[in-house]
Write a protein that binds this DNA or RNA. Structure first.
Lengths: 139, 139
DNA sequence: CAGGATCCGGCTGGATACTG
DNA sequence: CAGTATCCAGCCGGATCCTG
């Protein structure tokens, strides 16, 4: 079995690199992984309904089965997502955001709003910096 | 809705992987990089004062000179940070958050708040999941 | 259907050495 | 002082194969 212990701030021990009590770092590590935010968003869109694995995969264009699996397991471990197995053959597994997950979605919504409002500005800035660089180069 | 410059279309290249018009993805990519949020936070704490490179490095424990440099250049390109060079010998370079950067800091503050309020809950969830796993294992 | 195991390429970021 | 350039290890995530 693979040690399912990414970071250990559980009991007394903590092999954390720098700031073990920096929750923001841990949160950003999670959000930074490629599919987490999309999974949360997709589940949030469906809430309060449950969504099955395959359906979830279908709604997340580009995600591989492995990464969806890994992402969901991570979210489940974090208590952001609930997992319900229907013991039939073939099995059916349902996922849904927990209350905690929904509260995170609210934060993500804030991120999305900022991004939509300001990313164009950031793009424009890239332009400006390039122009400046050219000007400096051939002065 | 005003499609905010796919950013890929600018010069032709930049072949974005999936959703070029997903600003959230781009924002998360930025925030996900290890030192971005800490740099923004550190500069925000100093604002409206400027901070020199070495001083900034001193205030960000663990950051390498390379990564600080890369991070700052990225932030500058994004228009989130302003860079002022004092052409002396040795040179002195000053960094400061722009208005855009400050508005991002506000969003980050939201993230931080959520993280501080809920990361303990997430840790507790890990506990629960482990217990559950053990129980299932040795039923 | 759901997802574990494995292999592996590419990118992130750390350490080091060098420059204006 | 404030970087840039290079090398390289480790991790992330995609593709593939296999199982209950």
């Amino acid at each position: 079995m693979t040690t399912p212990e990414p970071r250990a701030a559980r009991r007394g021990e903590h092999g954390d690199l720098f700031d073990p009590q920096c929750p923001t770092r841990q949160l950003l590590d999670r959000l930074g992984t490629k599919w987490t935010s999309m999974a949360v968003k997709t589940l949030a869109d469906a809430a309060p309904d449950e969504v099955r694995f395959a359906e979830l995969k279908r709604r997340m264009p580009g995600v591989s089965q492995k990464m969806l699996s890994v992402t969901l397991r991570s979210l489940t471990r974090d208590g952001l997502v609930s997992r319900r197995v229907e013991p039939s053959v073939p099995p059916r597994v349902f996922y849904r955001l927990t209350g905690l997950g929904l509260s995170l979605e609210a934060v993500l919504a804030g991120l999305r709003t900022w991004a939509e409002e300001h990313m164009a500005e950031i793009d424009r800035s890239h332009y400006a910096v390039e122009q400046e660089a050219e000007g400096t180069a051939e002065a």
